[in-house]
Nucleic acid binder design. Structure first.
Lengths: 256, 256
DNA sequence: AATGCTGTTCCCCTCTAGGGAAGATTATTT
DNA sequence: AAATAATCTTCCCTAGAGGGGAACAGCATT
């Protein structure tokens, strides 16, 4: 297996960075004008203007009366990403089912550059609000999805990631270093599912099961809920649900 | 109302163009390497490499064993776009309903830079295959969605668009110029719904109703199907369906 | 061990692209 | 309606960004 570096080496292209800064601003707030963007990103109006024209020509954004906004073109890109991941339909339908039958939050995540990225999320009837969102990243060591993925990927890759992590304690329960994490991963590997016991967010617990494929993991599927409802017994019970869902997804992964 | 130019003036940023060329290649095919991209886009490996590192740092793409692929970050962007459009939930549920009750393809589109962009698509039981896809653009003058939107937007904007169109005949029925188009728009405005009678694709007919808001149009909702099933009577019948769906969406558009 | 792939780094030189400022256009004010 | 103040857009100058070539490094295959 090729050794991947998760640090960022090499040169950066400044104008590309500027372009994505613009896109990021537009992601948070639409109908922004040239002047406003120039002020916010600390560039001259002419610079921003040229960028906007470039992005506009590429149909990344549209110009409307009251400013620029991101275009639907991005929806097409997102679709391509979903298709490339493969098995999106099975995954989403299993996550939906899980959310419905448990009433909680169900999610599917994969590893990207040593972090957990959410591919799909469904919220059940009594689900709590969380800040997790499709497409964003979270640390691997503080989430059930991340730890579960780590526990089942080829050990060479697991080590790469574990060693490159900078550990930050989000709560008093957060794993604080490699040794502790390795121990936890062992437990998960043996038990077959991973738990997040208020390690990422105070008051929230999760259970996750890996979706395996040959000698590696495609991702993991999880359920999240408030500690009040997520007793040890309930978690064990829920672990059966996630394992079953994971299994269904695995069975539908013959090709791709 | 501000006069918008739909032609592309001003300077372009070359490196941003290169970056999006890379993204476009990656959209069609994942796990592409540096060398391959350099060949395909006709740039040196070092150039492509720097770009890839930049995009990687921005989490636009991920580097895996067998090459680069677009990251889930794009799903997050797509979500922002949907949120910015507003009323996405009502729109998608109405389109779903429409597809289900008619068994055909139902779509919702908006205008972007004088073209029709698809925001949402649902396919019913007996739906035919089409190349339309969420996020992509089609001409306004050859689609029921586009013509319907044109028919109900402020006339100043309609003119701007109609005049800037370059007319291409996709089928023998395609509208061929401004005069013909204006006449058609009049009919649509009076009738309350628009029709595409094999004007965009041979063998396909569509009906669309506008989703209005104050003095302008948010977009339009349509049903598409094979001419064999879409007799004039059926179309008139279906027009009621789309008008009803459009109305439901309108009623849910108080804010935003 | 040798060859042929990849990805990565280095350096040079050109011309890109960022910035300032002035000109257009539209909006707001009086 | 004229005047003012915002925008957006264009133009030009010049520093340094970034594209390219080539050499290097790391794997894989033979």
């Amino acid at each position: 297996m090729t050794v991947r570096k998760d640090d960022y080496s090499g040169r950066r292209i400044r104008s590309v960075t500027i372009a994505f800064n613009i896109i990021e601003v537009l992601q948070e707030r639409n109908h922004v004008g040239v002047t406003e963007l120039a002020d916010e990103l600390d560039h001259s109006k002419s610079t921003i203007y040229s960028h906007l024209q470039t992005l506009r020509e590429r149909s990344i954004l549209v110009q409307e009366d009251n400013g620029y906004r991101l275009s639907l073109r991005l929806l097409d890109m997102a679709n391509s990403v979903r298709e490339q991941i493969g098995n999106y339909d099975v995954i989403s339908s299993e996550v939906d089912k899980l959310a419905e039958e448990t009433g909680e939050i169900a999610q599917f995540g994969i590893e990207e550059h040593g972090r957990t990225s959410y591919l799909y999320k469904a919220t059940g009837e009594q689900a709590v609000e969380t800040r997790s969102r499709v497409g964003i990243q979270q640390p691997m060591y503080s989430t059930s999805l991340g730890k579960t993925i780590l526990a089942f990927m080829p050990s060479s890759r697991t080590e790469e990631i574990v060693e490159s992590i900078e550990y930050t304690s989000f709560t008093s329960q957060t794993v604080t270093g490699p040794q502790e994490l390795y121990a936890e991963l062992d437990v998960i590997a043996k038990r077959g599912y991973g738990i997040d016991d208020e390690e990422n967010i105070e008051g929230l617990r999760c259970v996750a099961a890996p979706v395996k494929r040959e000698d590696t993991v495609l991702g993991a599927i999880s359920i999240t809920g408030p500690s009040s409802r997520f007793t040890d017994e309930r978690i064990e019970e829920l672990s059966e649900h996630v394992k079953r869902a994971a299994n269904v997804i695995e069975l539908n992964t013959k090709f791709s």
